[in-house]
């Protein structure tokens, strides 16, 4: 379940706990951002400002780093993140048909979030579970050997 920001106090305490866990060093920047991203599903602007203050790093540096890594997002994401693997091993196992049905079911283009804030659909490079392609990951759940027929059932598990 993603946390949403209720007060300034939330922001301060979440940043503080991440910084305490990883240490206020430059090598901790990515781990800190990852932890916060996991908490909120993305990196809210006010949180970035707080990290910038605590670590004494320019905000522009944080944005430049955050925009580099696929697992970090500076834009809000839906309640559920769907990652579809588009690399060759999954593709050869007919990944394209799965992708087609995902897009049709959700009515989303890659990178888009649904209007009701439920889904964000993204494509991804190999997720390292290629033995069972095609692969999709929804939040922390991995689905392998996905067929177009299974897609509606899988989506129905999420509210």
């Amino acid at each position: 379940m993603l946390t949403s920001i209720q007060s300034e106090q939330d922001v301060i305490s979440i940043v503080e706990s991440a910084v305490t866990r990883h240490g206020a060093k430059s090598e901790s920047l990515v781990p800190i951002l990852s932890e916060i991203n996991q908490e909120f599903g993305y990196l809210p602007g006010e949180v970035l400002s707080e990290v910038s203050r605590v670590l004494n790093m320019p905000r522009s540096h944080l944005i430049s780093v955050a925009s580099f890594y696929h697992m970090l997002s500076t834009k809000p994401r839906g309640r559920h993140l769907i990652q579809f693997c588009e690399s060759a091993p999954c593709h050869v196992m007919h990944g394209r048909q799965v992708w087609q049905i995902l897009q049709d079911e959700l009515g989303l283009e890659p990178g888009q979030t649904s209007a009701d804030g439920k889904w964000t659909l993204v494509t991804s490079s190999c997720l390292g579970i290629c033995g069972v392609g095609p692969v999709i990951i929804i939040d922390d759940d991995t689905y392998g050997n996905v067929t177009p027929e299974r897609v509606p059932d899988i989506l129905a598990r999420y509210v």
Partner: peptide, 24 residues
């Protein structure tokens, strides 16, 4: 050290940049 998703970080010098807290 846990990465944050970027294929290029497997390249050894990018990996080192990434540990140092920079873009990989």
């Amino acid at each position: 050290h846990i990465g944050a998703g970027a294929y290029i970080c497997g390249e050894e010098t990018a990996l080192i940049e990434s540990i140092e807290g920079k873009r990989g």
